Amino acid sequence: MTSDLLPMIAAERRRIADLIDSLTPEQLATPSLCGEWTVQEVAGHLAVPFLVPQWRFLPLILRSGFSLHAANARLAREVGRRPAGGLAAALRSHAEHPLRPPVVGHPGQLTDLQVHGQDIRRPLGLPGDLHPDPLRVSLDFLVGGRAIGFIDRRWIAGLRFEATDLDWSAGAGPLVRGPGEAVLLALTGRRVVLPELTGDGVAVLAGRGT
């Protein structure tokens, strides 16, 4: 399965590179759906593996108090200060790179690209339909127990999620139902999609922290 995901990953990198190249400076400075990152800083995050040498990661983790999240955020902001065209070029020229992050592997890499692509598109009001096959891979990954750093298990615990356009479901309990793209973002804690979902579980999510 891993090798089957590489063409999907390459396609997503190229889609995001094309997207970044199409944006104005104002759009690049827009807050994304991902925490406090701007659209350009999200692009920086996705380009980090191709622009930052590996030897820099350990010292940065040490300076960040052994917090991978904090180190990741610092790198995203640092690399996000580079010209947007260079970030797009890095994603495009490394589209077929077989990067395989530890633990989460290629499913995690594909999911990172799909989720962050929507983090960019949605605040800008840009269409971002995700292809069904990669979307299904990411939904399975998020509920499969290996999505470390992607989801908070307390956020989705005791709920059933259903994608109306994919014939996909997982979990048991009050229902959270809607388009697969909205379910993907809901699983990763993006509250902005809750109005697009139906079922008794939506109110449960709305009452939870992330």
Rank of each mutant, 00 (worst) to 15 (best):
E181Q: 13
I120E: 03
P59Q: 14
D140W: 05
I61D: 12
L23A: 06
T164L: 10
L62S: 13
V104I: 10
Q54F: 13
E181S: 09
E36H: 14
D129L: 00
E196P: 07
R15N: 06
H94W: 03
Q40E: 08
G173P: 06
I156F: 00
V176Y: 06
A163E: 13
V193K: 05
A203G: 06
V52L: 15
G108E: 06
V39C: 05
V202G: 03
D152M: 00
L33K: 11
S3L: 13
L62K: 15
G80C: 05
S3A: 14
D133P: 14
P83Q: 03
T210N: 09
N72D: 09
R136L: 03
L23I: 10
R191S: 01
P174M: 10
R153A: 15
W168E: 00
I156H: 05
H45Q: 11
R122L: 11
L205K: 06
L5P: 03
P98R: 12
A163G: 12
A10W: 00
V193N: 01
L58P: 15
R190V: 03
E12I: 09
V143N: 11
D152V: 01
R160Y: 11
V42I: 12
S138H: 02
I120R: 05
A157S: 13
R81A: 04
P101N: 08
W37P: 04
G125F: 05
P195C: 08
I61K: 15
C34W: 04
D167R: 15
L197F: 03
L184F: 12
A147V: 01
T2V: 12
A88R: 02
W37H: 11
G44N: 13
A84I: 03
P123F: 13
S3Y: 11
L87G: 02
G201M: 10
I20D: 03
G128K: 07
R136C: 02
G207H: 13
R56N: 13
G209C: 10
L62D: 10
F150W: 06
G173H: 07
S67E: 15
L60M: 14
Q27K: 09
A70P: 07
Q118F: 09
A84P: 00
T164H: 10
A203H: 07
R190D: 01
P25E: 14
L135N: 02
R100F: 09
